[in-house]
Every structure is written in C-alpha cells, then in structure tokens.
C-alpha cells in the first residue's frame, strides 16, 4: 500500500514572544495567551525562506527514506509565501536535493492547505503507479500585518514527505477532501499582507470544513475518534484545534503531540504537516493517525495513516521536529523581528 517512506521538518531558530509583540501595540498579551493559546512563534532569518526551509526539510526526509534522490518523480511545494511571484520553488528544491532533471515540479497555493494539497497529489501519483517516489512539502514564512491579530501567530517552518510503496513507514489508508467557496481570508496580487474576515474565519470557515472532512473520513473508514492514537488538525492558533477536537469527540491527549502552534505559531502550509512530523517522531507500529488540514477560501484535506513496523528504523535518522522547536532557539525583540521580516523601509 502507498504511504510515507520518509519525512522531515525544519524550523528557524528565532522566536518572538507574544508579550513582545503585545508591548509594541499596547494590547493585552494574556488575551492571546489564554484566549488563543499562543506563547511564541518562529521567525525566519534574513537568509531563510520557503525554498531554504523546504530544502532542509526535504534533506531530512531523504535521510529517513534512504533512497536515491534521482528516483523522486515529483517535487511539490505548497506555500502561500513562495519567494517568487513567478518562478517555481520546486525546481530550486529539486535541484538542491539532486532530483532534477527527470522530475515533475509544481508549486501549490491554497492558503494554509497548500502543503496537504501537494501530499494529496503526490500520493495519487504513487497510487496510480506513475512514479516510484514523490516528494510533497508544506512550507511558509507567513506574514501578518503589523498590529493585526495574525501578527501574533504567523510563523515559519516546513515539513516534507516522500511517498512511495516500498518500505512504507505510514500507510495512507483513506483520504477525503471537503471544499466550498468561503472568503474568510485572502491576499490580492501585489499586496504584502493578507486580509481576513475576523470572526467569520471561525464557525463557517475553519470549524465547518475541518468537521466536514473529519466526519466524512471517519464515516467512510468506519473509524471512531477513540481508534486514533494521534490526531492533527490545522492550527492557526492553539485554541481552534483544541475546540474542534473536543467537538468531534477527541480527548486532549490525542491532540497533544501534534499541537505545535502554542510554541511554534501558525506555519500555514507547514502547520498540520509539521504536526504530523512531530507525531511520526514518536509513533509506534500499528497506531492510526488522523490528519485534517484547513486552508482558507476554503477547504480541508483529511488523511488516515497506519504506522508500520518500519517506523522505528527511521525515526532517529534525522533531527526530530521537537529538536527544531526546543533546541538552540533565540528570542528576539520586536526591532530585530521587524528587521528580519523586512518591515523596515531601507534607504537605497
């Protein structure tokens, strides 16, 4: 059965605390910490973007997959912050990992769902027997407008998955997608920051689509919430996934391992994919995992994974996701953050 043969994550080392942002805008940090379960978020360095993080995550996935990169038939990168407006991220990543030139590359964009979109297509190609391996990456260096509520959560990170049929570590037993046209969040061409529809991003957007996809995939697979060792939802903040989990009948412990947002922020296209890498780092053979992404605009992709015996061989072959979250992190002040995120207008 087709599934994941290698996975890897990457996050930059810089962090900014919610308090530091709140101090600048005169807001109440506690409301973000308690209300949205946000503590701090990752910030990319000046020399990091979706492409660099994708390369590092892909290299970690390759270390675990232990395959010749030339056998990778597709490189898909999902992001809403591709470094170029026109020019693919995938070709750079494909070149850097040694997968070019006999490879298919595509860049996906679907707000925070672009990562699982790539995974969905990569899996489909493997299942169709079109290629031996396919690489899908979700990565973002997302930006929230200064002082906007999003500024407290928009973060940077990447997760990469290599799909195949040999030496699979996590079989994909079911998938389901749920989409409607829901304008809850968008960014027009040439605009630096996105706009969102405030509380409209909740019930009719995030909650409706996550629940729609989760309920459907459990129904077609005949699974119940208690069948899953872990569940990973898209995490725009710490509160939404916790709430939707409760509404769907999951216990907090099932969400715990994959819930990275409170200490990482929302890595957009990397959000639920990075949650999945954190789960794979500790998953045991036989366990089942439910993952449901969400992208504004709007839609959810749901996946059910079944962990195989192979997982234990590969978990230690590359840095764990929590290594990137907890080790070597450096806290920066808002001035440094503004510099790193190019919010300061420079001279010629």
């Amino acid at each position: 059965m087709a599934g994941i043969v290698g996975y890897g994550a990457y996050a930059p080392r810089y962090r900014i605390k919610v308090e530091e942002i709140a101090k600048v805008w005169g807001t109440d940090a506690e409301s973000y910490k308690r209300g949205l379960r946000l503590e701090e978020k990752s910030v990319p360095g000046l020399d990091q973007d979706v492409i660099t993080m994708s390369v590092e995550a892909a290299r970690n996935a390759l270390k675990r997959a232990r395959i010749d990169p030339k056998k990778i038939g597709a490189v898909y990168i999902g992001s809403e912050s591709h470094p170029y407006a026109v020019k693919p991220s995938g070709t750079v990543v494909g070149e850097a990992i040694g997968a070019t030139p006999d490879v298919h590359c595509a860049d996906f964009e679907f707000a925070c769902k672009a990562g699982t979109e790539g995974m969905f297509v990569a899996l489909g190609l493997i299942e169709a027997g079109k290629m031996e391996y396919a690489l899908a990456i979700g990565a973002d260096t997302s930006q929230g407008a200064p002082s906007d509520a999003l500024e407290y959560s928009t973060a940077a990170g990447a997760a990469a998955f290599i799909f195949g049929t040999k030496d699979v570590i996590a079989e994909v037993t079911h998938t389901f997608s749920y989409m409607t046209d829901t304008p809850d969040f968008w960014r027009r061409e040439y605009m630096h920051y996105p706009r969102h529809a405030g509380r409209f991003t909740g019930a009719p957007a995030y909650f409706k689509h996550i629940k729609g996809a989760a309920k459907a995939i459990m129904e077609i697979s005949g699974k119940k919430p208690e069948d899953f060792a872990h569940v990973v939802f898209h995490q725009p903040n710490g509160k939404f996934p916790t709430t939707v989990g409760k509404q769907l009948g999951f216990k907090p412990q099932q969400l715990e391992t994959g819930l990275l947002c409170p200490r990482l922020g929302n890595t957009y296209s990397g959000s639920s994919p990075m949650g999945l890498t954190a789960v794979l780092d500790v998953a045991k053979p036989g366990e089942e995992i439910l993952m449901v992404s969400y992208g504004s605009g709007a839609g959810s992709d749901a996946f059910i994974y079944r962990i195989t015996e192979k997982i234990t061989e590969v978990q230690g072959l590359a840095p764990k996701t929590t290594d990137y979250l907890d080790r070597n992190k450096v806290y920066i002040d808002y001035g440094t953050y503004a510099k790193l995120r190019k919010k300061i207008r420079m001279g010629e």
Partner: peptide, 8 residues
C-alpha cells in the same frame, strides 16, 4: 559546523 542551504 554543518552546511545548510540558505539564501545568500
């Protein structure tokens, strides 16, 4: 040190 892929 370890070599990483970065923007120059």
């Amino acid at each position: 040190v370890r070599i990483e892929f970065r923007k120059i």
